[in-house]
Amino acid sequence: MADRPASAVKTMGDLDLRTIILPLVAIVVLIAYFTYINPLFFSSANALNIGRQSAVLLMVALAGTVVILIGSIDLSVGALVTLAGILAALTVDRFGVPGAILTGVGVGALVGLINGSLVTMLRVPSFLVTLGMLSILSGVTNQISQGQSILFMDSLLPDIVNGSVVLGVPNVIWFALIATAVLTVVAFRTKLGRYLYALGGGEIVAAHAGVPVTFYKILAFVLAGAICGLAGVMLTGQVGAGTPTAGGSLLLNSIAAVVMGGTALSGGIGGPHRTFLGVLVIAILTNGMDVTEVNSFTQDIVKGVVIILAVSLTIDRSKYLFIK
């Protein structure tokens, strides 16, 4: 295979360096700014608060990263987290924590299987499939819960999620960090990871190279769905109930985190380690705006601007003949 032109290599190198430096600079600037406005922002208590607030978001963003790496997108992640959380709340008293986890992860994997199958076998764009699935899952959630929070008696799940085993750090934070480490290893040290990047880099080229494209595209959606299912269980344990609006903000924030971290929506660039940085940016930005009492409407505007800027800086324009 011919080498890339020197100009293309330089462009990709500049893009890679930019997507590493920008989130780090953003983190430093945001911390400095919010600390100047409110010195209480820079405290260990608030750092743990940021960690607790962003742990589930990190899980969802990791799920989104898996799908975005292959050049697709999953708009149903927030709705899936909500449904998995409701089902976990309904099953934990009868089947215990293991049953709740299996239910959440199983439902998530099933939804991912459906999404991936529709995308690959019917050749329907992932945007449209998962947009429809978002509506379906929201409807199912409201049918099951009747729009009400689902309470449960089991105290073990909240204890596991909110308790602390190591260094006084809530377990929910450790779960999210472990998931990040595992997915990073998968991305860079396994065949699955290599194939995900290959699909995002060029599906036709990957197919000619012998990659089972359909299987691995479906597997990406299944893996993403399973992670969202686990995130839903974690969120239910964190809140102490299954709530039908729990995942409302997760879709926008997770996409913002993924692209802010440097994973290109065009696929093939980035990874879980980048998403971790992106989540830090979004979490610090959100917490800082809360601490400085910025109203929720303004926060939505700021996050929208962040998404547009991040996409404009990370998209690989060489993959598109036309921008539509």
Results as ranks from 00 to 15, higher is better:
A187G: 08
M1V: 13
H273Q: 11
R189E: 02
V81G: 11
T214M: 11
S44T: 14
A109L: 10
S138H: 09
G64Y: 04
L199R: 08
V129M: 07
F127R: 00
L277R: 03
A231F: 02
F276S: 00
G106C: 15
I31W: 14
I31G: 04
I150C: 03
N171Q: 12
P23D: 02
V105K: 12
L40P: 05
K303H: 03
N38S: 15
E293P: 01
T190H: 04
A310M: 12
I178R: 02
K10E: 12
G288Y: 08
A47M: 14
V222I: 15
W174A: 12
L157G: 13
G85A: 02
L90D: 11
A176K: 09
L313N: 12
L48V: 08
L48R: 02
D93K: 06
G202I: 02
G237D: 07
R194K: 15
L57Q: 03
A100C: 09
K10V: 13
I114V: 15
A224N: 10
T82I: 12
I173N: 00
Y33R: 03
V67C: 05
T180C: 01
G116Y: 11
L58D: 03
V60M: 09
L118W: 11
P39G: 00
P125D: 13
I101P: 11
I282T: 00
I114R: 07
T298Y: 15
V306S: 01
P39K: 00
K10H: 12
